[in-house]
């Protein structure tokens, strides 16, 4: 096999991995704080992409330059989707705060189905073309033909988001409160942390990055329908479990591993079974290392 082909697969895997990472962050952060797999998370990604599409169409009538359309429509979509995430938590999860974990999980699945069908009814079941809003950036000479401008934007954006998020979690008061809450919720309230506020912020941040992923990948693939969030969501969930659910670096690592695996497996083995590999990984990781690559094994102190 020639080396260029390998590199193309590598960068294609990196692209997928970046998008999974933006999504997986939300799963892992929410799990870390309230021990819930938020199955409606993929829908936020889809709604983010849809909102940006609608806003871009609206703004394009004003004759603005493309870059302004991109920035404005993305901004609206990101804020709108974060508000969605915030509201979903308040409506579907907060009332069940003291209920068994299974009830909340079922509520999450219900929310996911509801949002999918709502978008199906409000929009259409067909694939819609997605405008390529991303600006052209120069591709380094030696990578021409291997990677395109959009991929460069996707990597850079993801990297910037990861760095900002790491700084936020590590150094800000809210970040420290999040870590404390995920480690011991009762003790967190005993030092005066407003746990509801922490949970709300977690949903806001997770929804923001998910919507960002949705906008980026839709601009890259050029199409969208109401169902894109489901499969992407499940795969990002696999990535989060692979990396160790609850661990933020784990989610990023798991996403990159998953993206690469899918890309190489599709490129060298068969692209027909592309989606199968994610689930093979899920089964293997659950059998052999249930706590994930970077996850901490659940210890129970007596």
């Amino acid at each position: 096999m020639d080396f260029d082909y390998f590199l193309r697969l590598f960068f294609s895997g990196l692209t997928r991995g970046s998008i999974y990472a933006l999504l997986a962050l939300g799963y892992t952060m929410v799990y870390g704080i309230i021990k819930l797999i938020n199955f409606a998370h993929g829908e936020i990604y889809m709604i983010g992409a849809f909102t940006a599409l609608i806003m871009a169409t609206v703004f394009s009538f004003t004759g603005m330059p493309t870059l302004a359309i991109l920035v404005l429509s993305s901004l609206v979509a990101l804020i709108y989707s974060s508000a969605y995430g915030f509201t979903i938590e308040k409506l579907a999860y907060k009332p069940l705060r003291k209920a068994p974990r299974l009830s909340v999980l079922i509520s999450a699945i219900g929310m996911s189905l509801f949002l999918q069908n709502y978008v199906l009814l409000a929009q259409t079941s067909n694939f819609l073309p997605y405008p390529s809003l991303l600006p052209q950036v120069p591709v380094p000479r030696f990578l021409q033909g291997i990677i395109n401008s959009q991929q460069i934007i996707i990597f850079t954006t993801t990297a910037v988001v990861m760095v900002l998020l790491t700084l936020l979690i590590k150094f800000t008061r809210m970040g420290k409160s999040m870590r404390a809450t995920s480690q011991d919720r009762v003790m967190a309230t005993l030092v005066g942390i407003n746990v509801n506020k922490v949970i709300s912020w977690t949903f806001l941040i997770g929804s923001f990055t998910a919507a960002l992923g949705g906008i980026l990948i839709s601009s890259f693939t050029g199409q969208i329908n109401f169902y894109v969030g489901f499969i992407a969501g499940i795969k990002a969930f696999v990535a989060a479990v692979l990396g160790g659910i609850g661990s933020i670096p784990g989610a990023v690592l798991g996403s990159l591993v998953l993206g690469m695996t899918e890309s190489f497996a599709a490129g060298y083995l068969s692209s027909v079974y592309e989606d199968v590999f994610a689930f093979i990984i899920l089964v293997l990781i659950l059998i052999f290392k249930p706590s994930g690559l970077l996850g901490r094994p659940e210890t129970q102190k007596v």
Partner: peptide, 26 residues
Amino acid sequence: ICQVPEGRRIFPHLTVQENLDMGALL
């Protein structure tokens, strides 16, 4: 009113300094 609960409940993955910072959170 501050409580030091039974079993101490140190935040295990925060540093000593960060644990102290959490005490002064408010």
